[in-house]
Computed example of a mutant assay.
Amino acid sequence: MARYTGPVCRLCRRDGAKLFLKGTRCDTTKCAFERREGPPGQQPPRRGKMTAYGTQLREKQKVKHYYGVLEKQFRLYFEKAERTKGNTGAALLGLLERRLDNVVHRLGFGLSRPQARQLISHGHITVNGRKCTIPSALVRAGDVIRVKNRAESLDIVRAAQADNNKQVPDYLSITESQVPEGIVGRLPSIEDVSIPVDMQLIIELCSR
């Protein structure tokens, strides 16, 4: 499975937005985005106004980095969103928000999307009672996301829940049980996305 393995704090600085790629560290004074101004690199940033293409590209890269998808995956999501009825931008964000690794993170089972992706890949998460090891799997309304009932899985998730201070979005709910469990109440909408995104810029770029 292809994935970005470089320093993630550079991505936040490049995109000009805090993407919370390091979990609780992003809420502390150690956050590189807060300590260092401007994009990464030894050379000073160029003067002058960014072009329209550059603005569109940065917005797309911000969404890609936030959800942890690569260019080919993003293009496939965009093509799928184009084929759906209604607003393409809302459909695209809805597909990204429905990814299992994102849902596991939004439930608080993982402090970051990379950690949630690792939990899924290592078999710690079940969907409707069946083990799912595909982080990009799309959840549906009514799906039950549950931590595997074994000591190793429970210890990892409970530690993440103890450190997590993020609010669970409205389209998800956590049930009161000894084993951490969440339910997808409805499909997510564009209002459920936790970072500001100008989808019109992304649609204009991807439609070229």
Rank of each mutant, 00 (worst) to 15 (best):
L187H: 05
A141V: 05
V193F: 00
M1I: 12
R47W: 06
Q167D: 13
P7E: 11
R208G: 15
Y77K: 07
R150K: 12
E176F: 01
R36M: 13
K49V: 10
I156V: 15
L95Q: 14
F74Q: 09
E152N: 12
R158K: 15
P169G: 08
Q61E: 14
L57R: 08
D101W: 06
P169E: 06
R25G: 00
P196I: 04
C12P: 02
V179L: 08
R208C: 03
D27M: 09
V179T: 15
K18G: 09
R36T: 13
T55E: 14
K62L: 10
M50G: 04
F74E: 06
K85T: 07
R10M: 09
G41C: 04
G123A: 14
I190Y: 07
G6I: 01
R3W: 04
R146E: 15
Q161D: 13
V179R: 02
R130Q: 13
G110W: 06
V197K: 07
R75V: 10
S177I: 01
G16V: 08
K131N: 13
A81L: 00
R99F: 00
T28Q: 11
D155A: 15
G185H: 10
R106W: 01
T28S: 15
P7G: 04
C12F: 01
D15P: 05
P196D: 11
D15K: 12
V179N: 01
D198C: 07
G6T: 11
E34F: 12
